[in-house]
Amino acid sequence: MKRERYTYLSTVTFALKSLLSGLKVTLTEFFTPKVTEQYPENRKTLKISERHRARLTMPHDENGANRCIACGLCQNACPNGSISIVTKSVTDEETGKSKKVLVSYEYDLGCCMFCQLCVNACPKNAIEFCNDFENAVYDRKKLVQKLNR
């Protein structure tokens, strides 16, 4: 802003104007609907953003199959080591080549810091974060989840 030399009266009018514009802002705020979420009561109407990262899941299709190819990229990408993948080798009957398949996908929610690096690393979009955020349990053993079925 250009610094001008204010006279006494222009200072007063300028001050009044700026004060009134401030008061206008808070007055409109006074009458806008309030943003407070009353959480346990409003469970039914609660809206969580789609991008919210609450828990890692592995979507399964109607046949119970997932898209995981057990490549281990997510396990390597995880900074906290909260993902551990158990694999086994299966020999394909047609080609005779051995192939890694997923036995169990273990995810420790207690270690996860929700950075989404695993989801970004996955080449098959086999894992994703869901909105289900009510994850508190009394035993941390319960936080270790097996994601594949």
Binding site: E29, F30, K34, V35, T36
Partner: peptide
């Protein structure tokens, strides 16, 4: 105060 800050205050 809560209303001016777009909150509900004690509920």
């Amino acid at each position: 105060c809560a209303a001016f800050q777009c909150r509900l205050g004690p509920m």
